[in-house]
Amino acid sequence: MRFSQRIGKKDVRQVLQTDSIDQILENKLWNNILNDFINKIEDHAYSYQKSKRAEVFIYIWENFFELKSDEIPSYTDGDVYTEGMTEYIKKWFLNAEWYEKYDLIEFLSDLSNPLRLDFTTKVNYTLKRELAGYTIIQNKIIQITAEQEISAIENALKNGSKYKSVETHLSQALEHLSNRENPDYRNSIKESISAVEAYCAILTNDSKSTLGKALNQIEKTHKIHTALKSSFSALYGYTSDSGGIRHSLLEDDINVEIEDAKFMLVSCSAFINYLKSKE
């Protein structure tokens, strides 16, 4: 792991990929296209009929790329040169803008249904694993990471030296969430809630205060709505009770997923920003 990754210096927008596709995600999406779509389609021609792959390539050439049918990579006898077409798609994909790459993924997802391929399932796994801000639902690319969520994390990370501990916890939460080699969603959640705890301890000038105690004090001095305080106390309880994240790191009674860690990071960041506005 690189030094910048170990200390948590990752750009939020690079981690939660909403307006870009990094090299690793690009590579894996191409592997999906090649291994889970192209190579799954039979490429053997029978008598004078074109192979199924050739037929699919013609459809892609004419309906996605919208190019002249007589200009598709072909042999001298007119048969589709499928290897050449694969290279054409690869070159186009690697040079396309990030949103154009998703155009192709969406097109192939729709095409994979009649071909009975599990392409969409494999792509969704890649998107989830690489923290892309999108998923495929009913063959359409849908954004699942909102701009407000990213902004909440970015703003929460912008603190002065007084709140360095808060920034450290949030950076570590982001690092645990985005570690491709060994993602640690449990510790990501712990760091997210610890960031709130650290912020509240500084706000109340009580370094030994628990979050529950600090919230009671802040409710009185900073006019936090009771329902909001209760909601966050409940989230804190989720991580701290006898079956919570902090008490069961070595047990399997709680199945912590990427969605849980992301939700806690966004929620804790938003709550820190809310407390900032009350100072």
Rank of each mutant, 00 (worst) to 15 (best):
H225S: 05
F232Q: 00
L249R: 09
Y236N: 12
Q217R: 03
H247R: 07
R186E: 02
G212F: 13
N216R: 12
T210R: 03
I189A: 04
K223R: 04
T210C: 01
A201P: 08
G243A: 12
H247L: 08
V196M: 13
H222E: 00
G243C: 00
Y236P: 01
N205Q: 15
I224Q: 10
L211F: 10
N187M: 14
N187P: 04
K229L: 06
Q217V: 10
L250T: 03
S233A: 14
Y199K: 04
S242T: 14
I254G: 12
A201H: 15
I254K: 15
T204N: 03
R180K: 03
I224L: 15
T226C: 01
I254C: 09
K208Q: 09
N205E: 15
A214T: 02
T226P: 07
A214V: 05
D241W: 13
I189V: 07
A227G: 01
R246A: 14
G244T: 13
D253Y: 06
F232C: 04
Y236S: 07
K213P: 04
S233I: 06
A227S: 06
K220L: 10
L235T: 09
S242D: 15
E181S: 10
S248T: 15
R246I: 13
D184C: 09
N187T: 08
T239A: 15
D184R: 06
S233H: 09
T221L: 08
G212N: 05
D252P: 02
S248I: 11
S248R: 15
G212H: 09
T221R: 01
K208E: 11
S188Y: 00
D241I: 10
Y238H: 13
A227H: 06
S209E: 05
R186K: 11
S192N: 00
Y236M: 07
D241T: 04
K220G: 04
L235P: 02
T226M: 01
S192F: 01
T226L: 05
